[in-house]
Design a protein around this nucleic acid. Structure first.
Length: 566
RNA sequence: CGGGGCGUGGCGCAGUGGGAGCGCGCAUGGUUUGGGACCAUGAGGCCGUGAGUUCAAACCUCACCGCCCCGACCA
């Protein structure tokens, strides 16, 4: 491709709205064009890169036993009523009506259609296992799109579905997919880590996310410095800092005028926060729930929500709190009745806690469970935190931000059962198909690759996903000899299988061309100039290298390939 | 949906009642040509939309729309 023909324009200044590096550079290079919030057009450079990523994904999915299919994005809403997800997916589901006023959806994912397909084509254990997959456009009316291609409302996703006869089969499909994912990230230049995850709206039990660590990410992952434990903060468990054992003391009331927060209470009584119990009030699908946890810990709302099986969990409003008879600032489980009480198991970790007295301006010292209060459930609902001990190996937990570049789920029989996907086993018995599903956002992967591979001058594309291999820069192009040599090299490189973008602009200065080359970030820059030609050479520099090397023109193709592919 | 911010040529911005501007980019001519050159000339804007206030609105008021950022959700 010639630069003068490329339908792209580079920008010298950062667009005001772009804050994350990948977003900034994708706009400045002219890779993407924004049409609406979270809706983008892909221009030639981005599209070439995306197609390369798709190619890598296809190769790895096929190698892992997948078979590519294609399902429609436009689907009848009845299908979603059947699985129940027209409700549970909520407002993120794009819905519309056709001319006959029938409800339709623009699909955000394809478990429903796969289930329909499976009902027809999977009849016997002999038909299993299969792993159909597709790369196709998804629609999700996200509450908020952000950071360029990181989070958008229309995006291409590779979604795969494993159909197995039993749990062992699922296990083996899941492992094969996980390995395929690791291969994909490695080939895209991404050191992604595999973390235990919450399965969210898709449903199911076990799931893992692949996270690319980067400060601009929107997820937090807890990792261990002593072992390979990694889990999304939503699900991670840390060892709660232990308290020194004490003999229980008699409970007594103290006056704490105006003290409403744990920090103020700790300060007022000169007691560590870990010796207090805090109270938090939630609304779970309309029911007010009382939650208590040790003062130095935070409630993990995902864990709580999963336990309560709540579709919508949020903090209760002041009005709901007072209607439930709770005293914000001085609430505790002591004497509390007529409301669901959930406690974090940290209440078992010590004795003589400071708790609210359930009346304004007063707290109780030396509250002990179960001597002084009752709760309905005790379980781990605490947020893990950096610095805590790893539950597996005793190492120290760390916290990293990252971008979720893939998510795999063991769905089990949820869709098989709700949608009636069954097969006949060897004994002629009907059994539900065991399903898994596996997603990678293609555009997000590109954005993540740029987040991971850039510097202050621009992108640094890894070779396998670069739109072109070589950025051929012609200097002194008004000199016919140089122009001819550059044209000749351009042809030779393509003939040798090296994908080449040729900056053939005759008037631009060297500085402009070099800066554009750095910005676009193709892996190898080759400069044809009067100066280098005088030595019978061209100049080559890998993006990111400091020094250039002279390559003799005689067998420049081999040298270029050597620099690119070894 | 809650909180914050912003809508003025392609991009970045100034302009806060009375002539729509600057830089970059773009076009033409000329001089340049190894890290974002210089000179000259020129094109390009119902100042997000609609109502209102006013003799007069990019500017003040109200409403709406759009976009960005922070939070609740996800590939």
């Amino acid at each position: 491709m010639r630069f003068t023909r490329l339908m792209t324009k580079t920008m010298r200044t950062d667009p005001a709205e772009a804050e994350t590096p990948s977003h900034r550079y994708m706009l400045r290079t002219g890779m993407v064009f924004q049409v609406a919030a979270g809706v983008y057009a892909y221009l030639p450079l981005a599209w070439r890169s995306l197609r390369k990523i798709e190619g890598i994904i296809r190769e790895e999915m096929d190698a892992a036993g997948g078979q590519e299919i294609r399902m429609p994005a436009l689907q009848p809403i009845e299908l979603w009523d059947e699985s129940g997800r027209s409700k549970t997916f909520g407002k993120a589901l794009f819905t519309l009506k056709d001319r006959r006023e029938r409800g339709m959806v623009l699909a955000p994912t394809h478990e429903e259609v796969i289930s329909q397909l499976a009902k027809t084509y999977i009849q016997s254990y002999r038909d299993l296992p299969v792993i159909p997959y597709q790369i196709q456009t998804k629609f999700r009316d996200e509450p908020r799109s952000r950071a360029g291609l990181i989070r958008v409302r229309e995006f291409d996703m590779k979604d795969a579905y494993s159909l197995d006869a039993d749990e062992d089969g699922l296990e083996s499909s899941y492992r094969a997919m996980a390995q395929a994912y690791r291969n994909i990230y490695e080939r895209c230049g991404l050191p992604a880590l595999m973390a235990e995850a919450d399965s969210g709206a898709i449903g199911g039990k076990d799931s893992h996310e692949f996270i690319l660590p980067t400060p601009t990410g929107e997820d937090t992952v807890i990792t261990c410095d002593g072992c390979d434990y990694a889990a999304n903060l939503e699900r991670a468990t840390g060892v709660k800092p232990p308290l020194a054992p004490e003999a229980p003391l008699p409970m007594e009331e103290v006056s704490t005028p105006g003290v409403k927060t744990i920090a103020a209470l700790s300060d007022f009584l000169r007691a560590p926060e870990s010796k207090t119990l805090k109270a938090v009030f939630y609304d779970a699908d309309g029911e007010t729930v009382f939650v208590t946890i040790r003062g130095d810990l935070e409630v993990n709302e995902v864990k709580l929500s999963n336990h309560l099986k709540a579709a919508a969990l949020r903090l209760a409003t002041e009005e709901e709190v007072s209607r439930a008879g709770l005293v914000a600032g001085s609430a505790s489980p002591v004497g509390l009745e007529g409301i669901r009480r959930v406690a974090d198991d940290s209440i078992l970790s010590g004795a003589n806690f400071v708790v609210g007295a359930n009346k304004p301006g007063a707290h109780l010292l030396n509250a002990n469970y179960p001597r002084d209060f009752e709760v309905d459930e005790v379980l781990d609902i605490a947020m893990a935190a950096a610095g805590q001990e790893c539950p597996g190996c005793g190492g120290t937990l760390k916290s990293v931000r990252g971008i979720e570049v893939g998510h795999i789920f063991k769905l089990g029989t949820f869709y098989s059962e709700t949608m009636g996907v069954q097969y006949l086993d060897r004994e002629g018995r009907r059994r539900p198909v065991i399903m898994g599903c596996y997603g990678i956002g293609v555009g997000r992967l590109l954005a993540a690759a740029i987040e991971q591979n850039h510097d202050d001058k621009g992108i640094r594309f890894p070779v396998p996903i670069a739109p072109y291999h070589v950025h051929l820069v012609g200097l002194n192009l008004t000199d016919p000899d140089v122009a001819t040599a550059a044209e000749d090299l351009y042809r030779r490189l393509w003939n040798a299988g090296v994908e080449c973008l040729y900056d053939d602009r005759p008037e631009e200065t060297a500085g402009v061309k070099f800066n554009d080359a750095d910005l676009l970030g193709l892996p190898l820059r080759v400069v044809v100039s009067r100066r280098a030609l005088a030595n019978g050479s061209v100049e080559a520099r890998r993006r990111g290298d400091k020094a250039a090397t002279l390559l003799p023109l005689a067998d420049v193709e081999q040298d270029v390939k050597g620099l690119l592919f070894t």
